[in-house]
Design a protein around this nucleic acid. Structure first.
Length: 154
DNA sequence: GCCAACGTTGGC
DNA sequence: GCCAACGTTGGC
């Protein structure tokens, strides 16, 4: 079992939006970064725990816990000519982009902000805290995952 | 809105 | 295969 962090802009899709989705689940579509795709396609398993992170907001923070809820499958937006994520080089026989579903489990007791994470020695190695990191899907160690939860629990 | 960092594209 | 140009991300 691996642990992950998924970024989302709450203005586009928030943790509350995930909780409000049918079965508290949504397909994580529109990812157009090869590293992120590879993680979804090759490394994720149903049940993997996920930290849900809000970016592009006044207080970027981990706000909730989710889990991987499907095996990987082709991202349908790549085949849709009307989508901004349409990819003319993708075919049904050879899809280029893959996604998984994620399901909301529970919100954190309180958001754990990026600023707060930066002040914790134990989390110094977190990918999220690396300079210039832009990956919207990131691996998290089990230790890091638990530590973030413990911060939220106080 | 600014800017640093990074990935992708495409000419050569 | 190099590398400049460009677009995007995301914190501040």
């Amino acid at each position: 079992m691996k642990h992950w962090l998924f970024k989302s802009e709450p203005g586009a899709f928030s943790y509350a939006d995930l909780e409000a989705s049918p079965n508290r689940t949504t397909g994580w579509d529109s990812i157009r970064n090869y590293q992120a795709r590879n993680m979804m396609r090759d490394e994720m398993s149903v049940g993997d725990p996920v930290l849900f992170y809000h970016s592009q907001t006044g207080k970027p923070a981990v706000v909730g816990v989710a889990e991987v809820a499907s095996t990987p499958y082709p991202d349908p937006t790549q085949f849709d000519p009307d989508s901004r994520y349409f990819d003319a080089k993708a075919t049904l026989e050879a899809p280029r982009w893959f996604q998984v579903d994620i399901r909301a489990l529970r919100p954190l007791e309180r958001p754990v902000t990026l600023a707060e994470l930066r002040n914790v020695d134990e989390l110094a190695g977190m990918y999220l805290l690396r300079r210039g990191n832009r990956l919207s899907i990131q691996p998290v160690t089990e230790r890091e995952f638990r530590y973030v939860l413990s911060l939220a629990a106080g």
